[in-house]
């Protein structure tokens, strides 16, 4: 998940080969990989109760908090299920709009150099524009409405799709297009069988960036400009001065992120990229 680190679209050699670690027996990998969190947890269990301060919660306190939240036994005005459901709904709407705008801009700048010259500065500005600025301005404009988080997600992410898709369009195999032309394949068939499949990996990478960046932007937007949602719950526990609430919600965030990642992406990867046998490995980064 090097979302901010790399913008490069998929390169075929990236993780395509089997990783050497896979050859190791499972228990060894599991043990060394989980050792560090276990050590941290042990330190947490041992050190925190002996600290002179009451502020830092023990793991037991956090777990109790999470269990209470899961059973909807909470002092917060909204349950954890409702909060994440509404946040995911906002995220979904934002992602769909962002990807649509991004695809239109991306395809246009990939096809026309004139349009690319026009749109480039917008795209670059949006790439470097931090979500928090968009969130603040959106919160001032739209208040505590559905629009604030959605607009933030769209503005914070559409440029990633646009630049990725533009690369993808420039990358469509010319030979195949020429071949389709000379064999008299009609336009829509060429679009369906040549252009679209070669764009799918780029779309996929864009979707990943959009969701992971959008999720972060959405959280910030909900902290400043919402009165419900998962991000707002972080603010609620922060204002209530309950660190176990913050840490507990952090774990909830992690769980939801992993679920989205596993369920959505593995399903999509299997469905959309089945035709490209070698590509599966590239998405396991």
């Amino acid at each position: 998940m090097s979302a901010q680190v790399k913008l490069a679209p998929l390169s075929p050699d990236n993780g395509a080969g089997p990783r050497p670690e896979a050859a190791k027996p499972l228990w060894r990998r599991v043990r060394s990989g989980y050792l560090f969190p276990i050590i941290l947890l042990a330190l947490w269990v041992i050190i925190v109760p002996n600290l002179p301060t009451e502020k830092i919660p023990t793991p037991g306190k956090v777990l109790t908090f999470m269990w209470d939240e899961i059973r909807v036994n909470t002092v917060a005005p909204k349950s954890v299920y409702y909060s994440f459901a509404i946040s995911l709904a906002r995220l979904a709407v934002g992602v769909v709009i962002s990807m649509t705008i991004g695809m239109i801009v991306g395809v246009a700048s990939g096809l026309s150099r004139r349009f690319d010259a026009f749109a480039r500065d917008y795209v670059v500005a949006s790439l470097v524009l931090p979500g928090l600025i968009v969130a603040l301005v959106a919160a001032l404009w739209f208040g505590f409405t559905f629009l604030t988080p959605v607009v933030t997600v769209v503005f914070a992410t559409f440029a990633y799709t646009a630049s990725n898709i533009a690369e993808g369009v420039r990358d469509v195999p010319r030979d195949l297009i020429f071949m389709a032309d000379s064999f008299g394949v009609n336009r829509s068939a060429a679009l369906r069988h040549v252009t679209l499949p070669s764009l799918v990996p780029f779309l996929f990478v864009s979707l990943r960036y959009t969701i992971s960046l959008g999720w972060k932007a959405l959280t910030i937007a909900e902290i400043f400009g919402a009165d419900q949602g998962a991000g707002w719950m972080l603010r609620f526990w922060y204002d209530a001065n309950r660190i176990q609430g913050l840490i507990g919600y952090t774990f909830f965030f992690a769980i939801v992120t992993v679920l989205v990642d596993r369920v959505l992406f593995e399903y999509l990867a299997r469905r959309l990229l089945a035709w490209r046998g070698d590509v599966a490995g590239a998405f396991q980064r």
């Binding site: 060394s32 560090f36 972080l234 660190i243 913050l246 992690a254």
Partner: peptide
Amino acid sequence: WWEDFLRDSVSLAISLPGLVYILILLLI
């Protein structure tokens, strides 16, 4: 050894929003 030891923790640390660190540490 260190790679295996820290790999998952690094990916976990990256996937958490920076905001979370800020809120928790500011509160503490």
